[in-house]
């Protein structure tokens, strides 16, 4: 067997080379060296690839998926026909915004969820879709919200992590926020058909307050969103949208002021 073919077959499966290759190597020290070198390197490759640290608590979290899924289905059923925009004050949006949320509007039809939406003059369907997407997103994080609402054993997210996650969505936070606003949850998040976004949770008077930044075309003007449980607002900023959502009765204006004064779009 040519050396090139021998090498190719060893490299393709160094963990279990064919007996034919092992027999050839037994009579050929150079071939044996190829096998030995490749196996040595394979140990290193496996060590790196399988050396990734699995996060603590992941298994437990995955085991809870069936119960979370059942709960989510119940909540979804309860929320059918309940998501209603509360305030109408927006005009037509930028074309790019339409593109992002046309998909959201279409999806609502595709999945067959029959929301009874109240379209007030000036409030367009796509803005409503964005609002629904935001509130739906919160129900995916219901465990975290419940934990923050309960207020027991809350763990503050390291500020460096908060900053990095917000930066991934294009937002730089002022460090003064760190003293005033402990953050109990921070994650990059996925908003339908949007650019990068990030989700923080803080604690207000009524419970968890979500701060979501979306790095896409700002809506034309601020508007409010709500369902049976949550109240929120979508606030256009220089390069994107700031979304604030909390439990009914929460004073979101305070958080809006806090963040709009202490954040800067850098991308």
């Amino acid at each position: 067997m040519e050396e090139s073919e021998f090498r190719e077959r060893v490299y393709a499966n160094p963990g279990a080379p064919d007996q034919e290759l092992l027999d050839l190597a037994r009579d050929n020290p150079a071939y044996q060296k190829i096998i030995d070198q490749t196996r040595l390197m394979e140990t290193e490759i496996a060590s790196v690839l399988k050396g990734v640290v699995v996060p603590k608590g992941l298994r437990e979290s995955l085991l809870q998926i069936p119960s979370r899924n059942a709960q989510s289905n119940e909540e979804q059923a309860a929320r059918v026909e309940s998501v209603v925009p509360a305030v109408d004050n927006s005009a037509a949006n930028a074309a790019s915004f339409f593109q992002y949320y046309a998909m959201a509007a279409s999806l609502l039809l595709v999945i067959g969820v029959v929301f009874t939406l109240t379209f007030e003059p000036g409030q367009n369907e796509l803005e409503v879709a964005l609002g629904e997407e935001m509130i739906n997103h919160l129900y995916h994080e219901s465990n975290e919200i419940a934990a923050i609402n309960a207020g027991n054993d809350l763990v503050t997210v390291q500020w460096n992590d908060v900053s990095e996650i917000m930066l991934s969505a294009g937002v730089q936070l002022a460090s003064t926020l760190q003293q005033n606003s402990p953050v109990y949850y921070a994650n990059p998040c996925i908003v339908l058909q949007a650019y990068s976004s990030a989700h923080l949770m803080l604690r207000g008077e009524e419970g968890a307050v979500s701060i979501i930044v979306i790095n896409n075309s700002p809506v034309e003007s601020e508007y409010r969103i709500q369902d049976d449980r949550f109240r929120g607002m979508i606030v256009p900023m220089e390069e994107g949208n700031l979304v604030l959502i909390g439990e009914d009765g929460e004073n979101l204006e305070l958080f809006k002021q806090l963040f709009s004064d202490n954040m800067e779009w850098v991308i």
């Binding site: 090498r7 190719e8 077959r9 490299y11 393709a12 499966n13 160094p14 070198q37 490749t38 390197m41 394979e42 490759i45």
Partner: peptide, 12 residues
């Protein structure tokens, strides 16, 4: 198999 060979070949 060819891609596996090339992957390890590049690393080597």
């Amino acid at each position: 198999m060819t891609r596996l060979f090339r992957a390890r070949s590049q690393l080597k």
